[in-house]
Design a protein around this nucleic acid. Structure first.
Lengths: 342, 342
DNA sequence: GTTAAAAATGTAAGCGCTTACATAAAGAGG
DNA sequence: CCTCTTTATGTAAGCGCTTACATTTTTAAC
């Protein structure tokens, strides 16, 4: 049941026939897997052009057992950090002829598991995951199918990873505040359920505090989704407490943004009356009033390194299991010593 | 060369053998394409579970001639609007078992063409594009391969589309400013080269102006990439002019943000000394000081409708070629009548 | 009980590539 | 000029599914 030789949908066999060579030779030209004589090569290229030949990826994947596709499942593609990493990853992959499938898990391990299953049945050669906290069936499934994967935004001692130590980063930020003289420090964290990065950051704050004999009071610890509005609400709640902290560490820049405007709306001066910090150093952080002290995270590097790892694995090349990227404390004007110190 | 019956990598034939049925029956169970007896169905499901069966998407795509994958090529996945649309599209697709491949063109038609070629050769059943301005070879290529595609963020009279009339939206915004009494209106536009949305918005401003016998002076028309910093620079340049406008229309919220802080840094009061508007109504727009007057765009709707269209086409169902979504003028506090009017 | 129609299942031919392996052509060495 | 490599090309067997078609089993109708 050979199809009619329409100009569209030409197969490799059509190209071979037109170029007067075998399908094997055409395949060699297309993939550069073996030397082909000059004239044959040109005849094949010409035939491809004339027939508007578009390779059939499914057939190629089936016979070569490589899909040339990488999957990425992130909590939310709308999150600027993940979007940047995804963008960097894709731009890197395309230089090797790979495509990228993306999916969002909405911070739900069950959804993440389903998405990964779908990607696997669709066919991928590698997978990018965020964080180290997954559905219990996820990693066994990946290992059982021998699918290379890498965890991002975290450092793992079990799996391949590219990221940073969230605990240490938060500790550094807290130490900076402590060194400034702050003692009463509050936290507006992201939701910690199914988000080990958020949880680690809070743990880092606690560690730094405890190292100086301080504690994080329950009433100064508020947990909210990563949104500007939620930051406002959280700050409003915090300011309603009997005592208020002199510095508030926020889980990310959005929460900090919201916290900042709410503090100002309540008549507080930042940083004079209260210091506020963010995390991620998104584009707007430098332009808030006052400019936000935060921690920059090289999301693009994370994406690229994940790509290098995954393609390396796909090609059987040696790769590093653990890839640490550097975060940096960006001190701007939203932090200062507490009133009492001046 | 039958592979060893490892627990991983079981094929449909392995499942069939274990369940004591033919491969056709297994396929029917998996796809629900035909009725299967109760007991056979259960035996098959059990066998799948026991063998950890994962379907081979390449084989499925090859024989069924459907990849169950949609492609999306946007200018930049880092752009919040596109990220939202992509997220909404993916969440919609997954409910039908479809996956999404994404790629960024960086506002370059040549790159867009390459990305689309790559996606086509990898195999997709439909394609989302942004805007109506492409490389001349792009649409012919899609039509020749009979690949369903839809243009987004724009309305087209030639192709399928989901979006809005950028000219009309900008006109509405400008009319609002004109009604407020502004006569001296400047524009900080996004780069118009290879971005018909940006160009259309400027055209809309011009139309509204001309309808009242006004013009957009060259020195009040600045074109910059969509970034906060660029907005600052643009405003700085505009304020350096001999005469300054009483209102500045910015191509998007980022430019408006930058313009706003630069105006304030120069000692201007917004909106008293100058009105400023944005476009898109991103999350931060409502929280700027003053809150930004802008135009909201339902990016999530665009993504979902694009998904409906593409899946509809893939299933041969009737679909609407033109899908208009509604933008809305969001009046906040960054706009007011000009000084002279008060 | 017989027969026709409906329902369930099986058979096997591809889908369009890649890639061992076989074969032929072209150089190299003596 | 003939054999031995080396290089270029062809042959054909899958890759793991779907699906038209054939066959068998069940159910319904009379």
């Amino acid at each position: 049941m050979r199809k009619a030789p329409l100009p569209g949908h030409a197969s490799l066999a059509d190209v071979a026939a037109r170029a007067g060579v075998s399908t094997a030779t055409v395949s060699r030209v297309l993939n550069g897997t073996a030397a082909v004589a000059q004239d044959a090569l040109q005849r094949v290229q010409r035939a491809c052009r004339e027939l508007n030949y578009v390779p059939n990826g499914a057939a190629r994947a089936l016979s070569s057992r490589r899909t040339r596709t990488i999957g990425a499942v992130v909590p939310s593609i709308e999150n600027a950090g993940f979007a940047v990493a995804i963008g960097a990853l894709q731009r890197w992959l395309v230089t090797s002829g790979y495509t990228l499938i993306v999916a969002s898990s909405d911070y739900d391990p069950a959804v993440e598991l389903r998405e990964v299953s779908l990607l696997m049945s669709r066919g991928i050669d590698g997978l990018l995951l965020v964080g180290g906290e997954h559905h219990p069936d996820l990693v066994p499934m990946l290992e059982q199918q021998e699918l290379p994967f890498i965890e991002t935004w975290t450092l793992s001692d079990a799996h391949a990873c590219v990221g940073f130590d969230n605990v240490a980063a938060a500790r550094q930020l807290t130490d900076y505040l402590l060194d400034l003289g702050h003692v009463d420090i509050g936290v507006i964290a992201g939701r910690m359920l199914h988000n080990d990065r958020a949880a680690s950051r809070v743990a880092g704050v606690r560690q730094a505090l405890e190292a100086r004999g301080l504690k994080l009071p329950t009433e100064w610890m508020i947990e909210r989704p990563y949104r500007i509005l939620e930051g406002r609400l959280a700050m409003k709640a915090m300011l309603a407490r009997r005592l208020r902290p002199t510095a508030v560490i926020c889980g990310n820049d959005q929460l900090a943004f919201g916290a900042l405007i709410e503090a100002q709306a309540s008549g507080l001066s930042v940083p004079d009356d209260m210091s506020i910090t963010g995390f991620n150093d998104l584009d707007f952080a430098a332009y808030l009033d006052p400019p936000l002290t935060t921690v920059s995270v090289p999301a693009d590097q994370i994406g690229v390194i994940a790509g290098e790892y995954l393609l390396g694995r796909a090609d059987g090349k040696p790769v590093l299991r653990v890839n640490e990227v550097l975060t940096k404390l960006i001190v701007r004007a939203s932090t200062a010593p507490p009133c009492s110190q001046r």
